[in-house]
Write a protein that binds this DNA or RNA. Sequence first.
DNA 1: CTGAAAGCGCTAACAG
DNA 2: CTGTTAGCGCTTTCAG
Lengths: 344, 344
Amino acid sequence: MEGILLSVTIKDIAAAVGLSTASVSRILNGRGRYSAASAKRVQAAAAELGYFKNRSAADLASPQQRRTIGVINYLAATNANDQVIQGILAEARERDVEVTIMYAQRDNQASITRVVKSMIERQVFAVLFLSVRPDQTVVDTLRQARIYPQEVASASDLNISSVSSDDFQIGYQATDLLLRRGYRRIAFVGADPQKDIIGRYRYAGYTAALQAYDVTPAKEWLFIGDGQYSYHSGLAAVTDFSEHPQTAVDAVFATSDDTALGIVNGLYDLGRPFSPGSLAVIGVDGSSTCTRARPQLSSMTQSFDLIGRTAVAEAVHAGDQVDQIKRIEIPFTIEERQTTPTKK
Amino acid sequence: MEGILLSVTIKDIAAAVGLSTASVSRILNGRGRYSAASAKRVQAAAAELGYFKNRSAADLASPQQRRTIGVINYLAATNANDQVIQGILAEARERDVEVTIMYAQRDNQASITRVVKSMIERQVFAVLFLSVRPDQTVVDTLRQARIYPQEVASASDLNISSVSSDDFQIGYQATDLLLRRGYRRIAFVGADPQKDIIGRYRYAGYTAALQAYDVTPAKEWLFIGDGQYSYHSGLAAVTDFSEHPQTAVDAVFATSDDTALGIVNGLYDLGRPFSPGSLAVIGVDGSSTCTRARPQLSSMTQSFDLIGRTAVAEAVHAGDQVDQIKRIEIPFTIEERQTTPTKK
DNA sequence: CTGAAAGCGCTAACAG
DNA sequence: CTGTTAGCGCTTTCAG
């Protein structure tokens, strides 16, 4: 309250109340034994002086406790990661662990490496990759630093733990639904079955479901676009299909809600807005897009919140078993809305 | 590479190469003088041993440098903050300052206070509130700790710096556009002119524009809904208007794109989808929603990226002038799309 | 060009 | 219940 201290330390408090810094520390942290009277005075002085703990000093002085978890996110136009983060934050709060969130550019290893380095410097005990894919080097580095690496809402071929949905089943169930509704010429749009593991699994599920109905997918039914599960891929797919009428697709399994929206909008832009009988669509994610689109999008909705919660639970549980590899699949649900009417 | 060190320190490197920790520190940070030969050996040893700096120790040992900026964000269904963050990150990178992002619950002072405390403990030199509103206590606390507080993409009545758009002009220009397109019975939907300053300014701009055309807004033209600029408010407004035909509104200034989408979807749900002549709408923000909706939404588009960049520039510039109060307004643009045709 | 020494602010034994 | 002491890992004068 008096002079302009660059910053108030426990030493100042100690001096103010006539105790040692050790006692002040104990009191402020509620550890060890101390008298209620001292406590009161210390608290008062701390408030009076405007004291705030210096985390760096506290962290440095405390025996390495594995208390904070690192999360690597990325920025995109639309992003389901916010839901995952919500789950992460909630679970972390309950388990009393801190969360440090940083941003990297997706698929940019230099950027990812930089962020990971920063995480290591900050002594996190685990890093969760939210739909960003680390390469093997990064994973190895982390393990060497005794930090548990984990992919979240995504999975890769790397030897690394993951918490995500069962993508084969997503592909299977989505396609199966379309088949049960009477569609047979079903396109697969937005993901690249060759490029990433999610695409591969969903595609496998898709073909398996078709097979169960004895339908063999034509080459033309696969429309990858940019392979980024993007809105744009959906838009482009519609154009493509309309330019090749012989493809005669009657439904599409869009590998994300964004892509599904692209399909629906593409139809609209062609002057043939969605209607029962035009082109059925089902997306994946269950994002807010689904209910805000018109028609509302049917979707394989993932439990992002649960994925986030599970991810921190697993990270905490893994402790320093940084080499442990566990692939967890979180259940999803099928939300049928307006884009999957029975075929007429 | 050998034993399992809990973590490698510069002491280990020093021992490995036969130098003092001081030299190792200088070399690793590229400060001071040292021989190229030593440098090479140190770099090699560091890589070999898998060394990573301990940030806590480094921060503690370095004279208080004001190097990191805190950002308080919140989680919502749809959120323009990601664009602001993009700008913040870009500018921060260029200026070589670190960014720490944390989440609070919007309008929950307890939550905000907790996060702010954490920021102070982490020695940030400024905290940017991204559309989250601190109360006066929090602001005072920050200033007392010599930390510069700043509202970003938002503004309040508090004595605190801000970087945001000119909300009066947004309201004025949006309404003016509608007037120029021939509409006269223009509703104001989604914000609460009584509750927050943004709503107040936009509403003031709205009435001023109407006045210039000699139109007096009817009470019924104001539809606040939840006052949260929400999608739901837009939806509800349409229902309300349709139930009170005497209101006979012919256009709406929706105070966010979400709200605008609510209007358009509300029309659709009523079985009277948007068409020239139904109900013109213009939103605010310029989010991706605009081009993904059908029809595409006209919008007062804010320069979120620039808002973010400016915010960090200002924070850096303010330095330790924590009491300085500067209200900066960033230009916006009008993007006319399909929801503001000339009245017929 | 390099090392010794001191210290950042806090916590953790260990005495007392 | 409280103080003393030592030290976390790093940076930084200041000598040499």
